[in-house]
């Protein structure tokens, strides 16, 4: 293990902590938890509030989109699928961007929290990607006339799902969790190349999927009463993603800590 500065050591402690580290009475292994500990103190008071706001906004957004968003003049009520499909797609992509940043932090700076964050982002991001594909498919059937086509946008989002699934599997595939984190971080970083491909696929190649309706530079091509539920759902999905990921990271740290305490106690009792 490289030793650039003392903070680097917690890595080993976050997986299965080596016993010699844990047995040391000097509290060295406690120091290794320094960053996760600070994370816990910061995040645990926030989690209930964040979850509550996310839940309320999700309910408001879904009810608004499902019952009250005006039907499109051409598509009719199927346009309401936009309110769940588009936010799911944004969360899926930005979730992967977050995972890629964690991978970079892990590879270069060996940040102990980055590995845990990447580990816990994976399943949540995969869920939102699956949601994007399912809702898109249910939207494509009535509008385009098909559940699925192999056009560049749809295929690149399917690849995103497989990147998430591959990351989940690879991270857990090694006996030594450190090896899993390292391998998964490389996959996470390489997979980031897919993100610009997803975004620009509808402009680079002819595709059945339409271009973006909302851009940072121009006016939105969505009428205001259809745009508002979309914005509420977008904020709600982002907050829900954040709340779930933070809660999962926090859970993982607590689980590891409990296991380490038990192991240390068992070791102490034996010697």
């Amino acid at each position: 293990m490289t030793q650039d500065y003392p903070n680097e050591a917690p890595l080993s402690a976050m997986g299965e902590p080596p016993l010699e580290v844990m047995r040391s009475k000097s509290g060295a292994w406690l120091h290794q938890f320094a960053n996760p500990g600070r994370f816990q103190r910061f995040v645990q008071p926030i989690i209930p509030w964040l979850s509550g706001v996310a839940l309320v906004l999700t309910v408001v957004g879904l009810v608004w989109g499902f019952y009250f968003a005006p039907p499109d003049w051409q598509q009719g009520v199927t346009a309401r699928i936009m309110d769940v499909h588009v936010p799911a797609a944004w969360v899926a992509m930005n979730g992967y961007a977050a995972l890629a940043i964690c991978s970079l932090l892990s590879i270069v700076w060996r940040h102990p929290l980055a590995d845990i964050a990447a580990r816990e982002i994976g399943p949540v991001g995969a869920g939102f990607t699956a949601l994007c594909l399912i809702t898109g498919s249910l939207w494509g059937r009535p509008d385009w006339g098909t559940y699925w086509v192999w056009d560049a946008r749809l295929t690149s989002v399917l690849i995103l799902l497989f990147l998430y699934l591959g990351h989940i599997a690879l991270l857990r595939a090694f006996d030594n969790p450190q090896h899993g984190y390292r391998a998964a971080a490389i996959l996470g970083l390489v997979g980031a190349i897919n993100l610009p491909i997803i975004v620009f696929s509808v402009y680079w190649w002819n595709s059945l999927h339409q271009g973006n309706s909302i851009s940072l530079t121009g006016p939105s091509k969505i009428y205001i009463t259809m745009l508002l539920p979309l914005l509420v759902c977008t904020i709600a999905f982002y907050l829900a993603f954040l709340a779930m990921v933070l809660a999962r990271i926090s859970s993982f740290i607590m689980e590891t800590k409990a296991r380490s305490l038990l192991l240390a106690a068992a070791e102490g009792g034996r010697s």
Binding site: S51, F66, R80, P123, G127, L131, T135, S250, E255
Partner: peptide, 30 residues
């Protein structure tokens, strides 16, 4: 189709959220 899409949304976000919540509560307790 619309009902299906919203149903899938409630199902997937519900499962993700509920599992995160239960795991968090269990980890705190443990």
């Amino acid at each position: 189709f619309v009902e299906g899409a919203y149903g899938a949304t409630v199902l997937i976000i519900g499962v993700l959220g509920l599992s995160a919540f239960l795991r968090y509560r269990a980890a705190r307790k443990r």
